[in-house]
Design a protein around this nucleic acid. Sequence first.
DNA 1: GAATAGTTTGGAAGAATTTGCAAGAAAAAT
DNA 2: ATTTTTCTTGCAAATTCTTCCAAACTATTC
Lengths: 256, 256
Amino acid sequence: MTATERQKRIEEYLQKAEFASLEELSAHVQASISTVRRDLTSLESFGNLKRTHGGARVVTPHTDEFAFSARDTHQLEEKEAIGRAAAALVQPNESVIIDAGTTAYHVALHLLNKAQMVVTNSLPVANLFGSASKMEVVVSAGVIYPRLGVLVGPLAVETFSKIHADVAIMSAGGIALDGVTNSHALLIDIQRQMLRGARKIILCLDHTKFGRKSTMHLCGLDDVDIIVTDSQAPETMVAALRERGNEVVLAEKHGP
Amino acid sequence: MTATERQKRIEEYLQKAEFASLEELSAHVQASISTVRRDLTSLESFGNLKRTHGGARVVTPHTDEFAFSARDTHQLEEKEAIGRAAAALVQPNESVIIDAGTTAYHVALHLLNKAQMVVTNSLPVANLFGSASKMEVVVSAGVIYPRLGVLVGPLAVETFSKIHADVAIMSAGGIALDGVTNSHALLIDIQRQMLRGARKIILCLDHTKFGRKSTMHLCGLDDVDIIVTDSQAPETMVAALRERGNEVVLAEKHGP
DNA sequence: GAATAGTTTGGAAGAATTTGCAAGAAAAAT
DNA sequence: ATTTTTCTTGCAAATTCTTCCAAACTATTC
């Protein structure tokens, strides 16, 4: 790995995690702490990040600062893996609906320049694709739900009622054997329209969502074509899902 | 394999991989490290890639944010002044339509927490208000026009056809005595709907736009209620505009 | 077809850069 | 105040870069 490449990966990692310790970064890029230190000082002078005691944090300008937790360093590796696995299920030049939510965001990261068209109601996702000029990105109308940067409300529902796509990348608050649930009431109507508008439904959930039930029922398991989760998902539930006919993909984390 | 062919393959490989070490490239094109080195120096001078220690990377335009907004230091002081002056014309708790474009963006900066509701088709503006959670921010549907982060197309037009507001903050490519013009054909239809949907039209232009005509006619001067510009606007045109009944506000830059 | 001039290729030696480590200084934590 | 952690600085080892050179190849001329 070249020095430039390493620095870019440090930047990327920080973009996702907001903060990272030297040890964490050192492990992630397979270089010594010293080297990471030097990289950080170098990157800092370009203004993209700020060094702190023990690590570094992103210096977010004024734009993309939705409090939404693509920056959740906690399940980062899992979501990263799920993102990669789910993106692999999308054929080049397919059109993709991307749900709001952190897991779907990670899928979006891996879809850059792969899908032909993307439809989303998530501002972070829109920002992500907005600069990658190769793809056609459709954003739904709607009112911004503040902290998450999601477009909600009747206008959003209406947009999705008019749009069809090959694949929908969905996330949710919980999955159990009697169906998929979500906690944000405002999102349910929109997600139902997404489900209606897509030919193939890919549901992305990290293992913590298994067996959980959120407040609102979103859809049944028959409405979902493929479930992508990480390898820590409870085996019994995975088995049960497969038993009843759902395709379940277990995403393997892989090191750099 | 000819030298040209080899260089082309190096370029192709880099396009896909983004980074590559010399060893990697050398193996891929079946040539010695030295030759690859020379090829890279040559290719670098054509600007398609950048050499790094140990390899090379594609020269990504890296417009990870939308190219314009804060980066555009062109006429920054003027736009700042215009932004302040135009924002002062908005009453608290009015609803405001905000056009795409750098000048309108500066108005938006001054409207934070002032207007009651904001409607926009500009992603930078949406991002701006998205985190300031007090206000209701409506975003239009549409396809992202890449480098500017503007939502365009029929979906955008449709959204604005349904929306009404007290004030519209508009920008344009040029103003002359026979009307207002803009250069982006895609925006014209949307802007017309904005004009129709607002009770009061505030047009914001820096002085360089005066006397200029862009490709597309947007509206007549009678459609505009107030024109906000900076103090360097040509006096003759300002006088002429006032003569014919337009209200013109000259924004004073205020320095330290 | 052979000889010659010019270009390209692969390699080697020395210069320059980068990397990892360790010791002392500085900063947080207790 | 002391202990622990982290940061800076200096240094030697390793890697990579530049520069030069000889061999191989191409094209031109006789």
